[in-house]
Simulated assay, not measured.
Amino acid sequence: MKQPLGVILAGGRARRMGGGDKGELALGGQTLLSHVIERFEPQVAGLALNANGDPARFAHYGLPVLPDSVAGFAGPLAGVLAGLDWAAAQGADTIVTAAADTPFLPPDLVPQLLLAAEGMAHTLALAATRDPAGDLNRHPTFGLWPIALRDDLRSALEGGLRKVVAWTDAHDGRVAEFPVAGSDPFFNVNTPDDLADAERLL
Rank of each mutant, 00 (worst) to 15 (best):
V96E: 07
D101L: 02
L114F: 00
D108C: 07
P103Q: 03
M120I: 05
I95R: 05
V96A: 03
A117D: 10
L109V: 04
L114S: 03
V96Q: 08
L105Q: 09
T102L: 00
A125D: 02
F104V: 04
T129R: 10
E118G: 11
A117P: 02
L124N: 05
G119H: 09
A98S: 14
L113T: 01
F104S: 06
A100P: 06
A98W: 09
A117Y: 08
V96K: 03
V110L: 08
T102S: 15
L124S: 04
E118N: 12
D93N: 12
A128M: 09
P103K: 04
P111S: 11
L124A: 00
T97G: 01
R130V: 03
T129W: 10
H122R: 02
L113Q: 10
L126K: 09
A128S: 14
A100M: 11
T94L: 15
A125P: 01
A125F: 00
R130S: 10
H122E: 07
A98V: 12
A128D: 03
A99H: 15
L126W: 02
D101S: 13
I95Y: 01
Q112L: 12
A99C: 13
H122W: 02
L109M: 07
Q112N: 13
A128H: 07
L105I: 15
L124T: 03
L105N: 08
A98M: 07
T102G: 04
P103A: 09
V110P: 05
G119M: 03
A98C: 13
A128Q: 11
M120N: 09
F104L: 11
T102A: 15
L105F: 06
R130N: 07
E118D: 14
L126T: 02
V110I: 07
A125I: 09
A98L: 06
A100N: 11
T129A: 08
H122P: 01
T94V: 07
P111R: 10
I95E: 07
P106E: 08
D101P: 06
L126Q: 12
A125L: 05
A128P: 02
P106C: 01
M120W: 07
L113F: 08
D108A: 11
P111A: 11
T129L: 07
H122T: 00
P106A: 05
L115Y: 14
F104I: 06
A117L: 10
I95M: 00
F104D: 04
